[in-house]
């Protein structure tokens, strides 16, 4: 087993051309990024609106839960039959599945902002937009990015499954390997997909840490100390 995996990774054929590792990794990354951007463009404004105004929170949480319960494979195959195009079907599926975590993160982030802080901002004469961008968004940023991280994990996983309807990327190794019972290739695909997810998650975790305002980080550390004391 281990031998087959090592053979696969050391075979230079697997590192070149349209089916080589670099191409597949870049494809996979490309799908993830494209879907992430499209999903953010849709989900972030909705999350900000609902979180800021408090209107439609129940609807948002409810519909988010329904989408979360959608089986990935069912959605992708359904969309493929509808559009009869692997890339279009897969990207739409990816976007749909990435929306709930981003939406939930944005909404939860704004909800978690201390009411007293928002009240003070309003009482000092900040208008709605000033309150949103100067106070609520910076404080909510960690949770918003937490939502983005979850979305990315979801996207890496779903893009692999979408190989079933013909999408490129790392899922190809998994499914093509299974089809011809080449376990070396299957395992290599699994390892690469897992590695990609882990690396992306670590990078985003670092970004998340870097973007949290210092004062908010201190406040969180203080709250933790109080709990443990």
């Amino acid at each position: 087993m281990i031998g087959e995996i090592i053979d696969w990774f050391t075979s230079s054929a697997n590192w070149q051309g349209a089916d080589g590792v670099p191409t597949r990794v870049l494809q996979h990354l490309g799908y993830v990024l494209l879907a992430l951007v499209l999903a953010s463009v849709i989900a972030v404004p909705i999350g900000l609106y609902v979180g800021h105004t408090g209107r439609g929170g129940v609807l948002l949480v409810g519909s988010g839960n329904v989408i979360r319960a959608l089986p990935t494979l069912g959605l992708v195959t359904f969309l493929f039959l509808l559009f009869t195009d692997s890339d279009v079907a897969a990207i739409i599926g990816l976007v749909v599945l990435a929306i709930p975590p981003i939406l939930a993160g944005t909404y939860a982030g704004l909800q978690a902002v201390d009411r007293a802080v928002v009240d003070a901002a309003e009482g000092m004469g900040m208008r709605g937009g000033q309150r949103l961008w100067q106070i609520e968004v910076p404080i909510a940023l960690p949770l918003v990015l937490g939502g983005v991280r979850n979305a990315v994990l979801q996207l890496v996983a779903t893009a692999a499954v979408a190989a079933y309807v013909g999408l490129g990327g790392l899922g190809r190794y998994l499914l093509d390997g299974l089809a011809i019972l080449d376990y070396g290739e299957v395992a290599a695909g699994a390892i690469l997909t897992a590695l990609l997810a882990i690396v992306l998650d670590v990078v985003l975790a670092a970004v998340q840490r870097a973007l949290v305002p210092r004062g908010v980080r201190l406040a969180e550390a203080g709250a933790k100390k109080e709990v443990s004391a």
Binding site: L153, V156, Y183, A187, A190, A194
Partner: peptide, 17 residues
């Protein structure tokens, strides 16, 4: 956190080995 990060299909096919 690590386990949770691993994509489902990848984990499914890794379990047998």
């Amino acid at each position: 956190n690590l386990v949770y990060t691993i994509p489902s299909l990848a984990l499914f096919v890794m379990i047998p080995s």
